[in-house]
Design a protein around this nucleic acid. Sequence first.
DNA 1: CTCTCTTTTGCTCAAACTGAGTATATCAGC
DNA 2: GCTGATATACTCAGTTTGAGCAAAAGAGAG
Lengths: 307, 307
Amino acid sequence: MSSERIQVGLNAVIVAVTDEAPRLITLAGDPAALPTGTLDPEEDRTLERALRRWVSEGTGIDLGYVEQLYTLGDRGRSSEPGVRLVSVAYVALVRERAPSPDSGAAWSDWYGLLPWEDWREGRPAVVDEAIVPAIDAWAAEAAAGDRAARRERSAILFGLGGSAWDIERVLERYELLWEIGFVPEAGAARSDDAVHGEPLVLDHRRIAAQALGRLRGKLRYRPVVFELVPATFTLTGLQRVVEALSGVRIHAQNFRRLIDRGGLVEKAGGIDASTGGRPAALYRFRRDVLRERPAPGVGLPGLRTAG
Amino acid sequence: MSSERIQVGLNAVIVAVTDEAPRLITLAGDPAALPTGTLDPEEDRTLERALRRWVSEGTGIDLGYVEQLYTLGDRGRSSEPGVRLVSVAYVALVRERAPSPDSGAAWSDWYGLLPWEDWREGRPAVVDEAIVPAIDAWAAEAAAGDRAARRERSAILFGLGGSAWDIERVLERYELLWEIGFVPEAGAARSDDAVHGEPLVLDHRRIAAQALGRLRGKLRYRPVVFELVPATFTLTGLQRVVEALSGVRIHAQNFRRLIDRGGLVEKAGGIDASTGGRPAALYRFRRDVLRERPAPGVGLPGLRTAG
DNA sequence: CTCTCTTTTGCTCAAACTGAGTATATCAGC
DNA sequence: GCTGATATACTCAGTTTGAGCAAAAGAGAG
C-alpha cells in the first residue's frame, strides 16, 4: 500500500468544575498534553470502552458521562515520523475533582489554556490588550480589499464593536487566533502564557477548544450540568457551574425560574447555611425529565450581549 | 502488540433533496451500502480531503458542504475477519441530484430506510400497524418492574400517548428498534422492507439514522438548507426541502416570517409561475448573514406536537 | 369574460417566553 | 435588634411563537 503507517489513538478531555473554575486533566510535559491512549483490538469491544479502560488504568478515574467529540487525522500530527496518527477525541464529565495519583496527570484551569473565553467579569483584559492589537495588525497587512472582511470576521467572533459575544464559537475563535499567529502552536516562540494561553502539545489545545464549545452548546438543550455537581446542590451552586462553563454571568432569578419551571430539579430537603446569607435549599436532579421532556437543558438565560 | 489488525475507513452519507424527498447515495449490493473509502496517507493531507477525493473518483460527484458525523469502531463491524475496522463517517450535502455514472451508486429514498421518520402526512401507518405492536410485545416480555419503563421510553421516542414527536431523536429511535429486533440487522431474517425499512450492510443504516438526526438538529441553528437548493428558489420551495428533511409540515406564513425576519434571503428578482396558484417570487440566500448573525437557522417553526 | 380553484403573501391576535428590575425572607455576626 | 449578605418571590414590558383570517395573483373551466 503505502510507506506511511496509520495508527489509531484516543484522546480524552476530562472535565470537572471546582471552585467556580472549569478544569481538565493534562499530563505533565513541555508542553503539556491531553491524556492519550490506544485501542486494544483484543480487549476493547468499543472505542468508548477502550477510553474508559486506559483512563481508569492511567489516572484511577472512572469516567461517567462520555461523549465523542471529533476525529482528527491531519498529516503531521504525530510526533513519530512515518506514522499517520488518527485520533478519536472524547469529552468526559466527572463529578469531583478526583485527585490524580502520581501518574503525571493534574487538573489544569481551562481558562489558562483559553484566557479570552472567560467573560464572567466582563470582557477580559487579554482581548483589549493583546488580541485586538494582534487582529488590527493582521487586518492591516491584508490587501486593501480583504481588510474589512478580516476586521468584520474578528469583530463578530470576539464581540467587538457592538457584536454580541457568542459563547459557543470557541473553536472558530481559536482557529482565528491560530491563523493570525497569536497562539504559540502556530510556529511562534513560546510567549507569555497568561496572555496567549498555556499551549498544549500538537493540536491538543484545539481539541480542548472544540470541547469547550461543544459543552457550552450542550448545556442549552441537555441536562449535562448535573454530571458535574454533587448529588444535592443549591441552585446558586448549580448556577455557578453553568457560569463557569459558559463563561458569562447569569441573572439569578431567571435562572431559578427556568430550572424549576422546566421540572429539572426537586427539593432534596435540607439546607446549606454556609452561603453567608440566607441559607439555600438543597435540590437534586430529577432523573425523570430525561424521559418526560424532549430536550431539557438549563437554557442559559440572559447572555445575548454579555459584557 | 495484538493479532487483530486495525484499519481506518471512511464513510459518506451524501444527501440531496429532490421532489420533496430526501435521498442519499447507496452502493448496489445485498444489502446496499454507504459509499466507503480509505485514507491514503501519502496523498491525503486530511481526512476530509481523502473523503472528497474518493467520492469524486468513485461517483464523479464533487462534494460541497461536508461535516464529520461520528467515528465507529465496535468489534465485529468489519466483513474481513481479523480486522478491526474504525470508520469515520461524514455527512455531505449536494445541490442537484447528480446522476451517478455506472459506479453502482444510486440515490435511495431516506425514508425507505427509516419509514417511521416521515410524519409529513401525520403519524405514518408503520408506527401504528407494526411498531406499536412490536413495542407492546417487547414490553410484555419484560419483568413486571420494567414494563412501565419500556412503555414510557417507547411512547416518548415515538410520540405515542400524548408525547410530542421529537424530530431529532432519530438515532435513539433506531437504537430502540434495533434493541427490540424490529430492524433486520438485529439478526432477524430479511422481512418486508416497506415496514421494517430497507436494511444496509453492517451498521450503515445506523449511520444514516444518526446523519438524519444531526441534519435535523443543524437546520435549526445553521443555514444548511441552502446547500440543498438551487441558487434561486421560492420560499415555498425552500419550505418543502425543510419539511422533507425534518419530516413534518410547517405553517407556511410563520416559516416565511422567520426566514425574512432573520435576513436569511433577499429577492432575486424573478418569478416562478409554475406553482399552480399565484406565482411565487424568487429569492436567493444572503451569504452575509453568516458573518452578521451568530446562529442563523431556519428555526423550524410549528413542530411541537406534529401529528 | 367571469367564476372557481390554487398558491402566495400580508396581517392580526392571544399565549408563552425573556430580560430585567423590585421586594421580601432568612440567616450570621456585631 | 441592626447590618450585611444571599436566597427566593413577584412583577412587568417587550419579544417571540403558534395559529388563523383574508387579500393578491395567476391558470383553467364554462
